[in-house]
Amino acid sequence: MTGWWERWFAGPGRCCLCGGPHRVTPWAGVWDRICMSCRGRLHRIHLPVCPRCGRGGTRGTTCEDCIHHPPGVLERNVAVLRYNAYAKELIRLFKYRGRECLALPLAEMMAERVFECGIRANALVSVPLHEDKLRRRGFNQSELLAREMGRLLRLPLIPVLVKVSPTLPQSRKSRRERLKALRGAFRVKPERIPGADQGTWLLTDDVYTTGTTLLECARALKAAGADRVCSVTLAR
């Protein structure tokens, strides 16, 4: 009896991000399952934000990046964290160091953000990897996040997007270079999605940098008949 009680009510537990000792009950929310050390290194994005990309610190006005984005393609992005050193490290561990177990807590943060921002989507779709990169990495981090989010939000994950041309890493490119490299890189299969014109499609990805990848994915979905496309990212 004592062991059962300690397990469910007084066990030390583990931080869901770093794995360090952290006293928490199993049913606690995601932020309560994160230790104080990790929480201190994560910078959550709070309102007001840019209404289009979710960047914090803009006093609720459209930021410089979004002024140049075409209207009516990607209507809105929401993000959880600023892309600081610790957020970058978590994403690196998740994508390249085999810490796929991070998908659940990171997706919980994203699902919570979607709910808080009032986005009511009909379906989820993840940003795809080109088949060559998927074969090398073994998994698509955006798909893992979307799968967990779908379970939490009770939304279907519909994998209609494909990346038809490989691209070099985009992190060091300018917005103009990214746009040129990614133009036409994504397609929808089939070309028209049955029922796509009803409701909102929610794109998922790990990081919003310039928004070019999400913009091009949204463009492909809109061309296939999607009525409204929003997105959610872990970091911005």
Rank of each mutant, 00 (worst) to 15 (best):
K163E: 02
G199T: 02
G98W: 14
L234K: 05
P194V: 07
L104Q: 02
G195T: 01
W201F: 12
V207Y: 04
V73G: 07
G13S: 13
G72Y: 10
A85C: 06
C230L: 09
H46D: 13
G11M: 12
L42F: 00
T212R: 01
A85T: 13
G150C: 09
I119S: 04
C38M: 09
T58H: 10
D197N: 13
C63K: 04
G195C: 05
V24L: 10
E64G: 10
C217G: 03
L102W: 03
H69A: 13
I158A: 01
Q170Y: 00
L203F: 08
W27G: 14
H46C: 06
C50S: 06
W5K: 02
I67Y: 10
V160N: 00
G40N: 06
C16D: 07
L179D: 05
L152Y: 07
G150R: 09
P159G: 07
A28G: 07
T233A: 09
E191Y: 00
L234Y: 06
C15Y: 02
V188H: 00
G19M: 11
E100N: 12
L155S: 04
G29F: 09
L42Y: 03
E6Y: 11
C38S: 07
V207R: 07
G98L: 07
S126T: 01
T233C: 12
P71V: 10
G13K: 10
A185R: 01
R176L: 08
K88H: 15
I45C: 02
E89I: 08
S165V: 14
R120P: 05
K95G: 12
C117N: 12
R219G: 12
L17F: 09
V229G: 00
M149V: 03
R187V: 13
P48I: 05
P51H: 13
Y86H: 12
R151P: 07
A85S: 15
T212F: 04
L182M: 08
T213H: 02
R39H: 10
S126E: 09
E116R: 15
C66I: 10
V207E: 01
A224K: 03
P194I: 08
G72I: 10
K95A: 11
C230Q: 03
T213S: 08
C15H: 06
N84L: 12
T213E: 04
T25D: 09
P70N: 12
D132I: 11
M149R: 05
V127H: 05
